[in-house]
Design a protein around this nucleic acid. Structure first.
Length: 167
DNA sequence: GTGTTTTCACACT
DNA sequence: AGTGTGAAAACAC
C-alpha cells in the first residue's frame, strides 16, 4: 500500500509518499497549484496517510520553524537507484545541520572528479530536506541549483541560519 | 568579469 | 558503442 500526505511548510508546499514504513519520495512546490497538479497525477491507489508520514509532517513543521530536526533516522527507499547516486545521497546526509559543503567537497568525498555528475545526482534527489542537498553549494559561494527551485533552497538556508533574508 | 577545457555518470540514440 | 547534457571547477585571458 502506498500512502501520501501534503502539507504547507511556511512559504512553500510539500508532499510525501511512503510505502511499507519507508519514505519513497518528497516533493516540494513553491505554489499551491503545483502541489495540486502533482497530487492529481497520482491519486489512484494511494491511501491517505500513515504513522510514518504523520511523524514526518510534525518534524518538517518544526524544522521550518527553526528547530534543529535531524531526519537521519527516517528509512528511505533508495533501491533501484544507481549505487553512485546512493553514495552521493548518503554522503549528503552526513552534512550536519547548519553547515555548508561544496559540490567539490562531495566529489572528493565520493572519490571522483566528476563534479557535474555529483550535481546531477543531487538534482535527482528524491528526498529533499531529508537528504539535505540544499547545504551543497558552489565552490565560489554561489548557490548552485535546486530541483524545486532556488527560492526554496534559499528559504531552507534561511531557516538554518545561513542567509539573513533577502532574495 | 567572459570563454575554454576538464571531468564523470546518465539518458538518449 | 557513440553522443549530448548537466545543480561544477579550474584556468586562461
Amino acid at each position: 500500500m502506498r500512502y501520501a500526505l501534503a502539507m504547507k511548510l511556511d512559504t512553500f508546499w510539500a508532499a510525501g509518499e511512503a510505502e511499507r514504513e519507508k519514505v519513497v519520495k518528497i516533493s516540494l512546490f513553491c505554489r499551491k497549484s503545483n502541489l495540486y497538479a502533482y497530487l492529481k497525477t497520482r491519486r489512484d491507489g494511494i491511501a491517505k496517510s500513515s504513522a510514518l508520514l504523520e511523524c514526518l509532517k510534525k518534524d518538517l513543521l518544526n524544522y521550518v520553524q527553526g528547530k534543529k530536526i535531524s531526519f537521519i533516522n527516517y528509512p528511505l527507499k533508495m533501491d533501484n537507484c544507481s549505487s553512485f547516486f546512493i553514495r552521493i545521497w548518503t554522503l549528503t546526509q552526513e552534512i550536519p545541520y547548519g553547515e555548508l559543503r561544496s559540490y567539490k567537497w562531495l566529489s572528493e568525498r565520493a572519490g571522483t572528479k566528476g563534479y557535474r555528475a555529483v550535481g546531477a545526482a543531487l538534482a535527482r534527489n528524491p528526498f529533499p530536506i531529508l537528504v539535505p542537498c540544499h547545504r551543497v553549494i558552489k565552490k565560489n559561494g554561489n548557490l548552485g541549483g535546486y530541483s524545486a527551485g532556488l527560492k526554496i533552497k534559499k528559504k531552507l538556508l534561511q531557516v538554518e541560519g545561513y542567509l539573513k533574508k533577502r532574495e
